[in-house]
Computed example of a mutant assay.
Amino acid sequence: MHIHNLSEKNSILNTFISEIRSVSIQKDRMRFRRNIERIGEVLGYELSKALNYKLVSVETPLGTSSINLTDNTIVLCSILRAGVPLHNGLLNYFDTADNAFISAYRHHKKNPESFEIIVEYLACPNLEGKTLILADPMLATGQSMVATFEALKPFGTPKEIHLVSVIGAKEGVSFVENHFDKTTHLWIATIDEKLNEKGYIIPGLGDAGDLAFGEKLQH
């Protein structure tokens, strides 16, 4: 797997990451969502450098200009609900992409420290031969990303796969690395050290879905 950890180089991205982590700033839900969206835009820009391009002629009022434009047929898939702001940021840059949405959540059994990933809702176009961008803001254990991809397989085999996350744990990165083809790209804003006993990223930022949209009742 090709891992692109954007935090390895300093950029304005550091500001957006610091604000989504801050316990005071993240209380502003609108700002939290916008920061996730902005991170999605940065990740989308970096991802665009790995796409295919072809030379196209563009007519201007005064003549003709030649420019390389992306030649990929993109399907952007996000995991609900936390993935919506990240999806919007990516869609701001890949505005002609087809879109897929899937719900995946942790179902805790008797032991609150163990869980399984449940996929319930899925809407997806044909993926055959296309460029799949699979977005999930928090790459904790990596199980949601893998379960989502398994659910997408009946819709066709993508030509290439790009995974996009805001914050990940080393365990989650290793998990997806072992479950996706070596040609897959992972674009991630930053990678944290570990998970706690409940499978949440440390230091992380908390629950991205709750911070963006409000607390939810547990299953």
Score class of each variant (00 low, 15 high):
I3Q: 04
H4C: 13
E8C: 07
N10K: 12
S11D: 13
I12R: 11
N14I: 10
F16M: 13
F16E: 13
F16V: 05
S24G: 06
D28T: 09
D28F: 00
M30V: 14
R31H: 12
R33A: 15
I39Y: 05
V42M: 10
L43F: 03
G44Y: 02
Y45G: 13
K49N: 14
L51Q: 04
N52Y: 07
L55D: 10
V56D: 09
L62H: 04
T64Y: 08
I67S: 07
L69H: 06
T70D: 09
T70V: 11
D71E: 12
T73L: 11
V75F: 07
S78D: 14
L80G: 02
R81M: 12
P85M: 05
L86I: 00
D95M: 00
D95R: 00
Y105W: 09
R106K: 14
K109A: 15
K110F: 14
K110R: 13
E113N: 07
S114E: 14
F115N: 13
I117K: 04
V119Q: 11
A123M: 01
A123Q: 10
C124F: 05
E128Q: 09
I133H: 02
L134P: 00
L134V: 05
A135W: 03
F149E: 03
K153Q: 15
K159M: 10
E160N: 01
E160L: 01
H162F: 12
L163D: 01
L163Q: 04
V166D: 03
K170W: 11
V173C: 06
V173S: 04
E177N: 14
F180Y: 11
F180T: 15
H185D: 08
L186C: 12
D192S: 14
N196I: 02
E197A: 15
I202F: 09
G204M: 01
D207R: 00
A208M: 08
A208S: 09
A212Y: 13
G214P: 08
L217G: 02
L217D: 10
H219M: 10
